Computed example of a mutant assay.
Amino acid sequence: MQGMTKAEVDKAERNEVALGDGPKRPRDAATLILLDRKGNDFHVLMGRRHAAHAFMPGKFVFPGGRTDPADSRVPVATGLYPEEEAKLTARAGRTGAIRARAIALSAIRETYEEAGLLIGRKGPLSTGKRDWQGFVEHSVQPSLEAVRFIARAITPPGRVRRFDTRFLAAWRDDVAVALPSGPTNELEELVWLPLAEARKADIPTITRTILDELEKRLSDDPLLRPGGTIPFYRMLHNRFVREVL
């Protein structure tokens, strides 16, 4: 997508998103790429969105959704690595450390809601936040030290919905409790796919771009150490550009 004009991006995504007069200001969102190492290969967890959704209907995506500022007030077993927090807050205007924490926790919450996977450590959790009661019931303290910032992308203008999405990653081993399904029906189908197969699936254009970035990152750093280079995709002067955070 790098270097494409807005018209070219609109054409590439015409079957993925609803075009129209959406919100002018993108909303913060987070998605989690859950990884599982299989020998020399890496698998990613993806789910298919319902065909009735206005945003990316019927596409395979990573669990994720809008960031809720209240997520920042949920207790955690461990916080973000300073290197990851610094990247999450880079070039983000009003976003500070509290917002970075909310973004990371929203990815963990969405992974529970959509996939039934609770990422963290076993231990008692006390919070009155309704969306986190699954963690309370299953005695899981969310943990952020396992979270890695992989990429950022802002939905181009002219969409019904626009998001400033942070693509985060964690390992399957970081799942403390795995339930048969999540409490919502956002995703119709959940599958673990090798990276090569995931790129061939019915996925959004930006997701394929992020998978390419992830494969490069894993090739250079299979352990996904904190503080890696973060590609940032956005529309600038009528072209979709790739910057580095």
Rank of each mutant, 00 (worst) to 15 (best):
A90R: 11
R91E: 11
R91G: 09
R91V: 01
R91Y: 11
A92G: 08
A92T: 00
R94V: 03
T95F: 10
T95S: 10
G96I: 05
G96K: 04
A97E: 11
A97F: 03
I98W: 10
I98M: 13
R99Q: 08
R99T: 13
A100R: 03
A100Q: 01
R101G: 04
R101L: 04
R101E: 08
A102G: 06
A102C: 07
A102R: 05
I103Y: 02
I103G: 01
I103K: 00
I103R: 01
A104G: 05
A104M: 08
A104E: 01
L105S: 01
L105E: 00
S106G: 02
S106P: 04
S106K: 07
A107R: 06
A107D: 12
I108M: 03
I108Q: 01
R109L: 14
R109Q: 15
E110I: 00
T111M: 06
T111E: 12
Y112C: 07
A115T: 15
G116C: 12
G116Q: 08
G116Y: 06
L117E: 10
L117R: 14
L118C: 09
I119W: 02
I119F: 06
G120Y: 07
G120E: 07
G120S: 12
G120H: 12
G120W: 06
R121K: 14
R121F: 00
R121D: 05
R121A: 01
K122N: 12
K122G: 14
K122E: 13
G123H: 09
G123E: 04
P124T: 13
L125F: 10
L125A: 10
L125S: 11
S126D: 14
S126E: 15
T127A: 12
T127E: 06
G128M: 04
K129A: 12
K129C: 02
R130Y: 02
D131F: 02
D131C: 05
D131A: 15
Q133E: 04
G134P: 09
V136E: 05
E137R: 15
E137C: 04
E137Y: 12
H138E: 13
H138Q: 14
H138D: 06
S139I: 00
S139P: 00
V140I: 14
V140C: 14
Q141R: 15
S143G: 15
L144D: 00
L144K: 09
E145H: 15
E145F: 04
V147R: 14
V147A: 15
V147W: 14
R148E: 05
R148S: 09
F149R: 02
F149C: 09
F149E: 10
F149T: 11
I150F: 12
I150N: 05
I150Y: 11
A151H: 09
R152C: 08
R152E: 12
A153N: 08
